[in-house]
Simulated scan of single mutants.
Amino acid sequence: MKYFGTVSSFDTVEGHGEIKPETGGDMLRFERGAFSSEKNTVPTVGQRLSYDVGTNSQRQRCALNLQTI
């Protein structure tokens, strides 16, 4: 299931950020490598994205398969 949200922060040095889900709830962390086909994409604050929800290596919820809209 695809979800939609807005980038609330992104650290270009560390390569990770957070996305605010449109449906509310907790912020979801994401890694730059989570962009499905746009590997060189640098997200900007306020940018709208679609994503899937999964878990990272620490078993925390995160955004995966990010795509710009």
Rank of each mutant, 00 (worst) to 15 (best):
S57P: 01
V53R: 05
R61Y: 13
Q58D: 13
F4W: 07
Q58Y: 14
Y3V: 01
T55K: 15
N56M: 03
M1I: 07
L28C: 08
F35C: 03
V7M: 04
F35P: 06
P21C: 05
E22N: 11
T23N: 10
V45S: 02
G17A: 03
L28I: 10
G33M: 03
D52V: 07
E31T: 00
K20T: 13
D26L: 08
Q67S: 13
S8V: 07
F30Y: 14
H16R: 01
V53I: 15
L64F: 13
D52Y: 00
S57Q: 13
G46K: 09
P43Q: 08
S36M: 12
E38M: 06
K20D: 08
F30S: 06
G15R: 13
S57F: 03
E31S: 05
T44Q: 12
G54A: 13
Q58S: 14
C62I: 01
K39Y: 12
G25S: 01
E14T: 02
K2F: 11
M1C: 02
F35E: 01
L28Y: 15
T6Y: 06
E22K: 04
A34K: 01
K2W: 12
V42R: 12
Q67M: 10
Y3G: 00
G17C: 04
G17I: 05
F10I: 04
T68W: 00
T55I: 11
N56G: 13
C62S: 12
V7N: 06
M1P: 05
D52A: 08
G5Q: 04
S9T: 12
M27K: 11
N40Q: 13
F35R: 02
E18L: 08
Y51D: 05
F35I: 03
N40H: 11
D11P: 06
R59K: 14
C62H: 04
M27Q: 07
E38F: 14
N56Q: 05
D26C: 01
T12N: 11
T23Y: 15
E31F: 15
